[in-house]
Amino acid sequence: MSAPAPTALRVGVDLVHVGEVAAAVECFGDRYVTRIYTDHEISCCRRDGVAGSGPAYAMESLAARFAAKEAVLKVLRPVDVQPAWRSIELHRMAGGWCEIRLSGPAAALADEAGVDGFAVSVSHEATLAAAVVIGWSAPPDRGEG
Protein backbone atom coordinates (compact mmCIF):
# COMPACT_ATOMS: atom_id res chain seq x y z
CA MET A 1 0.00 0.00 0.00
CA SER A 2 1.56 3.29 -1.06
CA ALA A 3 1.35 6.49 0.92
CA PRO A 4 -1.06 9.09 -0.44
CA ALA A 5 0.51 11.72 -2.70
CA PRO A 6 1.34 14.84 -0.70
CA THR A 7 -0.64 17.99 -1.24
CA ALA A 8 1.61 20.82 -2.40
CA LEU A 9 1.32 23.87 -0.16
CA ARG A 10 2.39 27.46 -0.56
CA VAL A 11 2.29 30.02 2.25
CA GLY A 12 2.20 33.80 2.11
CA VAL A 13 2.18 36.25 4.99
CA ASP A 14 2.07 40.04 5.15
CA LEU A 15 1.94 42.85 7.66
CA VAL A 16 0.52 46.32 6.96
CA HIS A 17 0.70 49.43 9.13
CA VAL A 18 -2.83 50.73 9.66
CA GLY A 19 -1.45 54.27 9.72
CA GLU A 20 -0.11 53.86 6.16
CA VAL A 21 -3.57 52.94 4.94
CA ALA A 22 -5.16 55.83 6.81
CA ALA A 23 -2.62 58.21 5.28
CA ALA A 24 -3.36 56.87 1.79
CA VAL A 25 -7.09 57.34 2.27
CA GLU A 26 -6.53 60.85 3.57
CA CYS A 27 -4.20 61.72 0.68
CA PHE A 28 -5.89 60.00 -2.27
CA GLY A 29 -9.43 59.41 -1.02
CA ASP A 30 -11.76 57.21 -3.02
CA ARG A 31 -9.23 56.95 -5.87
CA TYR A 32 -7.01 54.87 -3.58
CA VAL A 33 -9.91 52.85 -2.24
CA THR A 34 -11.52 52.03 -5.58
CA ARG A 35 -8.19 51.23 -7.24
CA ILE A 36 -7.26 48.63 -4.66
CA TYR A 37 -10.39 47.18 -3.09
CA THR A 38 -13.43 45.42 -4.58
CA ASP A 39 -16.96 46.71 -4.11
CA HIS A 40 -17.59 43.93 -1.59
CA GLU A 41 -14.46 44.83 0.38
CA ILE A 42 -15.37 48.51 0.35
CA SER A 43 -18.86 47.76 1.63
CA CYS A 44 -17.37 45.62 4.43
CA CYS A 45 -15.03 48.43 5.49
CA ARG A 46 -17.31 51.43 5.14
CA ARG A 47 -18.34 52.95 8.43
CA ASP A 48 -22.00 53.68 8.86
CA GLY A 49 -22.29 56.91 10.71
CA VAL A 50 -23.08 60.53 10.57
CA ALA A 51 -21.17 62.34 7.86
CA GLY A 52 -18.23 64.24 9.28
CA SER A 53 -18.17 62.25 12.49
CA GLY A 54 -15.01 60.32 11.65
CA PRO A 55 -13.22 58.40 8.95
CA ALA A 56 -15.40 56.93 6.21
CA TYR A 57 -13.67 53.56 6.45
CA ALA A 58 -12.49 51.17 9.13
CA MET A 59 -8.79 51.61 8.39
CA GLU A 60 -7.71 48.45 10.21
CA SER A 61 -10.13 46.44 8.08
CA LEU A 62 -8.80 47.98 4.86
CA ALA A 63 -5.26 47.23 6.07
CA ALA A 64 -6.18 43.59 6.76
CA ARG A 65 -7.53 43.28 3.24
CA PHE A 66 -4.40 44.77 1.72
CA ALA A 67 -2.31 42.34 3.76
CA ALA A 68 -4.43 39.46 2.48
CA LYS A 69 -3.96 40.58 -1.14
CA GLU A 70 -0.20 40.81 -0.67
CA ALA A 71 -0.13 37.40 1.03
CA VAL A 72 -2.03 35.92 -1.92
CA LEU A 73 0.55 37.43 -4.28
CA LYS A 74 3.28 35.72 -2.27
CA VAL A 75 1.45 32.44 -2.83
CA LEU A 76 0.91 33.07 -6.55
CA ARG A 77 4.49 34.28 -7.15
CA PRO A 78 3.90 36.39 -10.27
CA VAL A 79 7.12 36.76 -12.24
CA ASP A 80 6.08 39.49 -14.64
CA VAL A 81 2.88 41.50 -14.56
CA GLN A 82 1.26 41.69 -11.15
CA PRO A 83 -2.48 40.96 -11.24
CA ALA A 84 -4.73 43.90 -10.45
CA TRP A 85 -5.32 44.38 -6.76
CA ARG A 86 -9.07 44.19 -7.36
CA SER A 87 -8.75 40.71 -8.86
CA ILE A 88 -7.93 39.43 -5.36
CA GLU A 89 -10.76 39.70 -2.87
CA LEU A 90 -10.99 38.92 0.82
CA HIS A 91 -14.61 37.85 0.89
CA ARG A 92 -16.42 37.95 4.21
CA MET A 93 -18.93 35.16 4.54
CA ALA A 94 -22.26 35.50 6.30
CA GLY A 95 -20.91 33.51 9.25
CA GLY A 96 -18.11 36.03 9.76
CA TRP A 97 -15.14 34.06 8.44
CA CYS A 98 -13.31 35.06 5.28
CA GLU A 99 -12.36 33.38 2.02
CA ILE A 100 -10.11 34.33 -0.86
CA ARG A 101 -11.90 34.87 -4.15
CA LEU A 102 -9.95 35.51 -7.34
CA SER A 103 -11.07 36.85 -10.68
CA GLY A 104 -9.50 37.77 -14.00
CA PRO A 105 -5.68 37.82 -14.04
CA ALA A 106 -5.28 36.55 -10.47
CA ALA A 107 -7.52 33.56 -11.18
CA ALA A 108 -5.57 32.85 -14.37
CA LEU A 109 -2.30 33.03 -12.44
CA ALA A 110 -3.63 30.55 -9.85
CA ASP A 111 -4.62 28.18 -12.66
CA GLU A 112 -1.16 28.43 -14.22
CA ALA A 113 0.47 27.81 -10.85
CA GLY A 114 -1.80 24.84 -10.16
CA VAL A 115 -3.14 26.39 -6.97
CA ASP A 116 -6.56 24.85 -6.43
CA GLY A 117 -7.68 26.59 -3.27
CA PHE A 118 -6.79 28.95 -0.45
CA ALA A 119 -7.18 29.24 3.29
CA VAL A 120 -6.82 32.65 4.89
CA SER A 121 -6.66 34.16 8.32
CA VAL A 122 -6.46 37.88 9.06
CA SER A 123 -5.98 39.80 12.25
CA HIS A 124 -5.57 43.39 13.28
CA GLU A 125 -5.10 45.64 16.23
CA ALA A 126 -4.87 49.40 16.40
CA THR A 127 -1.64 49.85 14.46
CA LEU A 128 -0.96 46.62 12.55
CA ALA A 129 -2.90 44.23 10.36
CA ALA A 130 -1.68 40.79 9.34
CA ALA A 131 -2.75 38.05 6.97
CA VAL A 132 -1.64 34.49 6.39
CA VAL A 133 -2.70 32.71 3.21
CA ILE A 134 -2.14 29.06 2.37
CA GLY A 135 -2.59 27.89 -1.20
CA TRP A 136 -2.82 24.22 -1.97
CA SER A 137 -2.68 21.98 -4.99
CA ALA A 138 -4.75 18.84 -4.90
CA PRO A 139 -2.70 15.65 -5.25
CA PRO A 140 -2.83 14.13 -8.71
CA ASP A 141 -5.54 11.56 -9.28
CA ARG A 142 -3.76 8.21 -9.40
CA GLY A 143 -6.74 6.51 -10.87
CA GLU A 144 -6.97 4.07 -7.98
CA GLY A 145 -10.22 2.59 -6.94
Binding site: A24, C27, R31
Partner: peptide
Protein backbone atom coordinates in the same frame (compact mmCIF):
# COMPACT_ATOMS: atom_id res chain seq x y z
CA UNK B 1 9.68 50.77 0.13
CA UNK B 2 6.78 48.44 0.94
CA UNK B 3 4.20 47.20 -1.54
CA UNK B 4 1.65 49.50 0.04
CA UNK B 5 4.00 52.46 -0.23
CA UNK B 6 4.51 51.63 -3.91
CA UNK B 7 0.75 52.02 -4.41
CA UNK B 8 0.95 55.49 -2.88
CA UNK B 9 3.94 56.30 -5.09
CA UNK B 10 1.98 55.17 -8.13
CA UNK B 11 -1.02 57.35 -7.25
CA UNK B 12 1.20 60.34 -6.47
Amino acid sequence: MTSHASVNVMLA
